[in-house]
Each structure stands twice: as structure tokens, then as C-alpha cells.
Lab assay of single mutants.
Amino acid sequence: MDVFMKGLSKAKEGVVAAAEKTKQGVAEAAGKTKEGVLYVGSKTKEGVVHGVATVAEKTKEQVTNVGGAVVTGVTAVAQKTVEGAGSIAAATGFVKKDQLGKNEEGAPQEGILEDMPVDPDNEAYEMPSEEGYQDYEPEA
């Protein structure tokens, strides 16, 4: 019985440690998101679009440190934060509304985080759909 109880105690310690790591990862992701939003706020009209992409990228980098179902929630929060940063930029006159959601080359930025393969159960990952990809044929 002692062996059984000791095993359960060790398992509990492992769960607590994993929860603490997840909590730490979420806190880091939130900190990076805040950094990115402050970065966007300090940019001029020309830099705002690039700044919004930076927020998304920093958040995406930190999301990889967070495991399990938390990833889905962090990704949703990050996307809403990026959308909010863009709205703030438009409201303050840093950028025109028609410039939001495009990178410096004018290509749409939507789907940055949505296409990231995420499995809350950590069982399997699927690649994003290939609808947006084109076949590449090298020139002879």
C-alpha cells in the first residue's frame, strides 16, 4: 500500500510541476504579447503594419512553449490582441483601416495563427491545408 501511495504522490508532483510550467509559459506569452502591443503603439504610420505582424510573430513563438489545451486559448487571445492593436492603430490615425491585415508588401496577414497546427491532446499534428499553395516548377 505504501508503494501505491508513494507512486500516487510522485504522479501528483509531476502534474503540479507540469501545471506550473504551463502557467509560466502562458505568463511569458502574455508578456511578449504586451511587449508587441507597446511596440505597435510606438510606431509611426509606416511601421504600424509591420508592428502588428511582430506582435503576432512574438506571440506565436511563445505559444510553442505552452502545451496542451492552453495553446488553443493563448492563440485565440493573441489573435484578438493583434486585431485590437490594429483597431487602436486605425482609431489613433497611425494607419488607414484599409491597410490593416496586410503586410508591407500588401499581402493579407489573416491566418497567421489560424494555420498553425495545434492539437490540445498532444496526440497528432496535421499540416495546414494546401489550398493556398501553388506547385513550383523550376525553369529549365
Rank of each mutant, 00 (worst) to 15 (best):
Q134V: 05
A17I: 13
F94W: 12
K60G: 03
T92M: 02
G41F: 09
K58E: 02
A124W: 10
A27T: 12
Q134A: 06
Q109T: 08
G68P: 03
P108L: 08
L38H: 14
G14Q: 06
M5V: 14
E57V: 14
P128D: 08
P128C: 08
V40E: 00
E137L: 07
P120V: 04
E28Y: 03
G67T: 13
K45M: 07
E130H: 08
E131C: 10
T59M: 01
Y136I: 12
E137D: 08
D2G: 03
A124Y: 13
T72Y: 02
P128N: 08
V15F: 05
S42M: 12
E137T: 06
G47M: 07
E83Q: 10
K10Y: 05
E28Q: 13
A78G: 03
E130Q: 10
G67H: 03
A30K: 03
E114H: 15
N65T: 14
V74S: 01
K34M: 02
T92L: 10
L38C: 02
A85Q: 02
T92C: 15
T59K: 00
G101H: 07
E20F: 12
L8H: 00
E130R: 06
G51L: 10
H50Y: 09
Q99E: 03
T33F: 02
P120N: 04
G14F: 13
G41N: 05
S42E: 14
L113R: 13
G93Q: 15
E114G: 12
A140V: 10
A107Q: 07
D98V: 02
S129F: 13
E28F: 08
S9T: 05
S42H: 15
V70G: 01
Y133D: 15
A11G: 08
E123G: 11
E131G: 11
E57L: 11
A11Q: 00
K10F: 07
E57G: 08
Y125N: 09
G67D: 00
E131P: 11
V52Y: 15
G14W: 08
V48I: 10
D119F: 06
K45D: 00
D121R: 10
T72N: 14
G84Q: 14
G86P: 05
V40S: 01
D98K: 11
Y39W: 09
G132P: 04
G86H: 15
K12Y: 11
A140L: 09
V48M: 12
D121T: 10
V95N: 11
S9W: 07
I112D: 04
